[in-house]
């Protein structure tokens, strides 16, 4: 018997959104596999401002 528990209880989500999201997720995961290093262990998302300043300093004329 199929599990009828809604994935997001309380929400009336369009079933088409699920299909679109699965497609988008698959595309994302393929792109991620192409671009990511073997591990993200030593990466830091909050370093974006540091990265921007470094790039501005490094490449500005």
């Amino acid at each position: 018997m199929a599990d009828e528990t809604p994935k997001f209880p309380g929400y009336a989500l369009d079933t088409a959104a699920q299909a679109r999201a699965e497609k988008a997720q698959a595309v994302f995961r393929e792109a991620f596999a192409n671009l990511a290093p073997p591990s993200l262990f030593d990466t830091e998302p909050q370093a974006i401002e540091t990265a921007l300043n470094k790039l501005a300093g490094d490449v500005a004329p």
Partner: peptide
């Protein structure tokens, strides 16, 4: 559509951004 992405997908994208 945004509901359906996993937390790992979302954070992986941010983590790799710099």
């Amino acid at each position: 559509i945004g509901f359906q992405f996993s937390g790992v997908d979302y954070l992986s994208a941010l983590q790799l951004r710099p």
